[in-house]
């Protein structure tokens, strides 16, 4: 994973620099420094440093091996749950989304305590709704519940 992460950073650096050089001018029409000048410097330095880092991480991986820890699965599931939160938010609205996210999360990570999890999910989503919508008037998405507001 360490090496993969360093390769992802190198890929980002190449894309960033390529796009900067392709879409932005280094100098403007009056031969002054243009909008692409600073991004080009940052991009070139990024490519140089992430490439050097990638080589170093590759050597390190060859020495240490690539065993994956079981907890990577929990991290992936948590990331999936957060992504689901973001997908649901504009359509289902904040109240239902927070309830669904909390319920699903507790179902997965706090097993065997059904009643507690249900009460926690209801009470927590109601508390967030009261704090952000009623007290702070933050204007959170209403989603399918909009006709009830």
């Amino acid at each position: 994973m360490r090496f993969l992460f360093s390769m992802a950073l190198l890929a980002f650096s190449l894309s960033y620099t390529g796009y900067a050089l392709y879409s932005l001018d280094l100098l403007d029409r009056a031969d002054r420094l243009g909008p692409g000048f600073f991004p080009a410097i940052v991009g070139v330095l990024l490519i140089a440093t992430t490439a050097a880092n990638g080589i170093r991480e590759y050597r390190r991986q060859r020495e240490a091996g690539t065993a994956l820890d079981a907890l990577w699965r929990d991290v992936a599931e948590m990331t999936g749950l957060i992504a689901l939160f973001l997908v649901l938010l504009p359509y289902a609205g904040s109240l239902l989304t927070i309830f669904a996210f909390t319920g699903l999360y507790l179902y997965r990570f706090n097993r065997g305590r059904g009643w507690f999890n249900a009460v926690y999910a209801v009470a927590f989503s109601a508390a967030v709704y009261l704090l952000f919508e009623v007290v702070l008037q933050a204007g959170l998405p209403q989603g399918v519940l909009a006709p009830l507001y």
């Binding site: 938010l89 999360y105 990570f109 967030v128 952000f132 702070l136 933050a138």
Partner: peptide, 18 residues
Amino acid sequence: YRLVVPVIVTLCIVGTFA
């Protein structure tokens, strides 16, 4: 800690959206 996680995630997302 497992019961604190939904609070942190929700505050992060709702706070950012707000």
